[in-house]
């Protein structure tokens, strides 16, 4: 009886969240799933349930290619962000002793401006007459502006890697900060040099932060819309842009819904594999 009421109390406590989840996530998901089984006819929907859209994504190479490209761009961006941000998080966790909060705030300061503005800023930096190109020309390294800096996959990767840095620094900082310093001393006492100590103690113990950072960046950037739209050019189009097209000019909402579902499934699968592999690796190191 007591047990039951405990459970009941738990649900009551959770009810605001549950309600939001239900209304804000489950319901739209069900709508999306249903719509993906419809087809378009003119401006209306044909509501007979069919897997035709899924078949199309399987048969037409464009969808697979765009998915692959999205995972590639977002994967590289994720790796770059994590690698670039790890030293920053490491420095603050181990070598800053006073005003840590101020350091964290300083590092996340650029992220107080809107995402869109940051993307535009990169457009200015990477542009044909942008900061990088005019700088290189002024220094005499190049005679003509580098065209590949803008409207390319590289531009998208650079921008994503910067735009999402805050999401990498914070979780990695938290897990590095939690590491018991006496473990490091013990490792040194037992004869580990700095490199071995890092690989055998610090890195495995900060793994949860790294994994969290990877997820936090990989999942949203795969479906990113605005960065490839503004900086990607014809070759930088990602799946998010294509989904938007289905809801916009191509006017095929069911197809858009299908693509969204497929993207979700793929991300879930990749995340599961990634988690499994890192677990395995962590166990082996430990």
């Amino acid at each position: 009886m007591l047990h039951r009421s405990d459970a009941l109390r738990g649900y009551l406590l959770m009810s605001p969240t549950l309600l939001i989840m239900l209304v804000g996530i489950v319901a739209p998901f069900v709508i999306l799933l249903t719509m993906s089984l419809w087809t378009r006819s003119g401006f209306e929907f044909d509501t007979t349930l069919t897997l035709a859209n899924y078949e199309r994504t399987w048969n037409e190479p464009i969808f697979g290619a765009l998915l692959k490209r999205s995972f590639w761009i977002s994967g590289v961006a994720t790796a770059a962000t994590v690698i670039l941000c790890y030293p920053m998080a490491y420095y603050v966790a181990f070598h800053v002793h006073r005003n840590k909060m101020m350091w964290i705030i300083l590092m996340t300061l650029p992220f107080w401006t809107s995402y869109l503005l940051r993307v535009f800023a990169w457009k200015v930096i990477l542009g044909y007459e942008g900061v990088v190109n005019s700088g290189l020309i002024a220094l005499g390294f190049i005679d003509e502006p580098l065209g590949f800096l803008l409207y390319s996959q590289e531009a998208v990767i650079i921008t994503l890697a910067h735009a999402w840095a805050a999401f990498a620094i914070l979780p990695m900082y938290v897990s590095l900060e939690k590491i018991d310093k006496s473990l490091l001393e013990a490792a040194t006492d037992l004869g580990d040099g700095p490199a071995a100590r890092f690989l055998r103690v610090t890195l495995p113990l900060s793994m949860p932060g790294i994994i969290a950072a990877c997820f936090l960046i990989f999942i949203p950037t795969t479906g990113d819309y605005i960065t490839p739209a503004l900086l990607g050019g014809p070759d930088g189009v990602m799946i998010g842009n294509f989904i938007q097209l289905q809801f916009g000019p191509a006017n095929n909402w069911p197809m858009g819904a299908t693509l969204a579902i497929i993207l979700m499934l793929w991300i879930a699968a990749i995340a599961a594999v990634f988690l499994f592999v890192t677990r395995l690796a962590a166990r082996r190191v430990a």
Binding site: P61, D235, V237, F242, N251, N252
Partner: peptide
């Protein structure tokens, strides 16, 4: 017609994406 418009847009978007 609307059918033409939709078909054209779909095809052109695919071409722009490289297909």
């Amino acid at each position: 017609t609307q059918e033409w418009e939709t078909r054209m847009n779909e095809l052109f978007e695919q071409i722009k994406a490289g297909f």
